[in-house]
Write a protein that binds this DNA or RNA. Structure first.
Lengths: 211, 211, 211, 211
DNA sequence: GCTTAATCGAGACGGTACGTCGCGTCTTGCA
DNA sequence: TGCAAGACGCGACGTACCGTCTCGATTAAGC
């Protein structure tokens, strides 16, 4: 149901090598400096092409950086290993791989800044990048819940946000590496935080306590 | 033995009302639009002054926004309530108050973007903003640990990053409110994640398993 | 062997209508006010374009004003009329036309001021504007000299500077019009000053007199 | 009839050394660079004082430069030597001394530029600087005329403007020195140009000729 | 000896212009 | 139609100077 599918694209075909060159240039510039320290012109120069050729492919820097830095095909679900901890480790590792690379660390802030003013763009990120990530981790928790490993009162979304937040915060805000040790520790914390055994929820007094 | 301590400040003194006006203008502009959607000129205009008067006070937008948005005197430690959960709730609430305000949500991304290229600036943020926050939350966990409530193998830093990350991630990345319910849930997760009772650490096989 | 001769000019060509608009805007602003009362920004605004488009064409205000005000193709020599007085009148009239126009009167001072600090610019004026003017008038005198009309001891350069100086001084310094009557009178003075008949040079005593 | 003559000036008296320092600083800056290359701030700095102290004494740069560069007491008339040539030489030398000094050469252009927009200032220059100069030279010619040395049809003003123009033009426009030789030559030209003997005015045909 | 008043230094103030940079678009010639 | 090149209108950048002001300290003269 492609509306404007170009049945037979007329005119000179796009030079696909430019696509690659632009993406790589973007990544390199991100590694070398901050998101806001370069612009479309610098990207085009680095890629050995022109601004126009870049704009023909991506309408703005945010979407270009998104393409350059993040693996959209990330949605490769985690296989059912029958073990929440192992599955979460795999998911956490994937997250760390994605957000820990230097280009991503440099990109996140600027992307966030550009997002703030552009609702459409924000949606792209939420549904295209964050959403799948959430679903994937959420699925792990729900699967474990169906196996009875998760406390019924635990909120999967909260677990997801704690896990993802910890990784993103550590890599992008603190600039620290999300190494194996850290990932294990945070996964461990989350697993224990949601696991079923001996869960004793806060009393009502605590829950609705003063303030 | 302050070298450049202005014993008797010479020349016309700064107009302190300008400081306030600029900070408020900055906050308002952040609420109305994105970090990157306005510049020093717009701030000066809104504050009813000139760019120069702004630059006299803050050398760049990042430091100005930092001053405008974040309460530096945040380091007011959480009192010892004898209850980790209650203390963490207070800390989480403070965090949510700080990062949940509209201006902060709009600022975080741009700030992060500018930080990436400026090591000195990054240090200011880390030691002046994030550091105290960490220490505060870390102190709560350590206090609980000394009361025997925390599992000896649990890493306080990880708990801190999970708690902080979850809140920042939710407010700034997802744009969702960090309401009371969410805060309670994430505190609950962290408390259970580090608490001493019935902790069963991963086996060595799990820990060093094939990843 | 032009090195940077643009064999085939590449890229989008300059919009020639902007050149004209900028030159006219400059002239108009000079007529309306002083050289120093407006800047490149005002010129661009008046021309309906941008500063950048102006800077692309002229590196500074002095060179732009030079182009706007003075006819560079002034070097159209005066034809040999066989009569020094008539030829000098034509030359004087050309000078008065050039320096008497309102824009020129307003420009001269500022130009001179900017020149003082820029040797390169000063050369442009000397060789491009003053030089041809001199050669033209000098040629008239020399032609007359070859006809025997000029005293052999008379210095053509001095005659040139007296004629030119009188006109420039009157129009630009005194703000008086260099009308037909004045021009006739000053040409008459110069002609008589250099003519051969009954010249009685100063005695040595006069020439090397006290002080 | 001094209206606001401060009978007894109360308050702290002006530091007269500042007057001198400012005038000298102005002269030095003019020698080192162009009129437009420095401002009141630079003058104050160089004089080791503040802008305000300068503005207290002179309302703008043009008047300050005028004071700094030109000897207002120039009106010392030329004594009657009974010889036009000798008297004109003395006057020419005085003119050359005044306008030939480096500071004056650098000042003239900028002064002219500032004058253009300020009628009051222009009057100051005309009546205070140029006027006396004219009167002085004009008086010489008229004196000679009364002795019968000058042709009755010769216009003294034209002679004045030719003499003055030649000197100013040579020093300020061409940047050449008005040395003894040049002054003698231009005086000679003017003397011959106005002298009574063998003057044969242009015929009517020439005077009202075509064009 | 105290008040009064103008000056001094220093530097902030609201303005305006500077010359440069980057944006996103457009207009050429060539492939 | 794509591409390289570069001009276009637009707007922000950080700086510099303008002429004025507001400070505390200084320096006479008059009371």
């Amino acid at each position: 149901m492609e509306v404007d599918a170009p049945g037979t694209p007329i005119g000179r075909p796009r030079d696909t090598s430019i696509d690659a060159a632009v993406l790589e240039a973007t990544r390199n510039l991100l590694i070398e400096g901050a998101y806001s320290s370069f612009g479309m012109g610098a990207i085009a120069d680095r890629a050995g092409t022109t601004r126009q050729a870049v704009y023909r492919r991506w309408p703005n820097k945010a979407l270009l950086v998104l393409d350059a830095v993040f693996t959209h095909t990330v949605a490769t679900g985690i296989p059912d290993l029958g073990d929440m901890r192992a599955e979460l480790r795999a998911a956490a590792q994937a997250l760390a791989d994605e957000f820990g690379q230097p280009a991503a660390r440099a990109a996140v802030g600027g992307l966030l800044a550009d997002l703030a003013g552009d609702a459409a763009l924000h949606d792209v990120v939420r549904t295209g990048l964050l959403g799948p990530e959430h679903d994937r981790v959420g699925a792990i928790v729900e699967r474990a819940r169906s196996r009875g490993e998760v406390d019924p009162t635990a909120d999967a979304d909260v677990a997801v946000q704690a896990l993802g937040g910890a990784i993103v915060y550590r890599t992008c805000f603190l600039g620290l590496p999300a190494d194996r040790e850290f990932l294990d520790a945070v996964v461990d914390l989350v697993v224990r935080g949601v696991s079923a055994d001996h869960r004793h929820p806060p009393t009502d007094a605590e829950r609705k306590g003063p303030r």
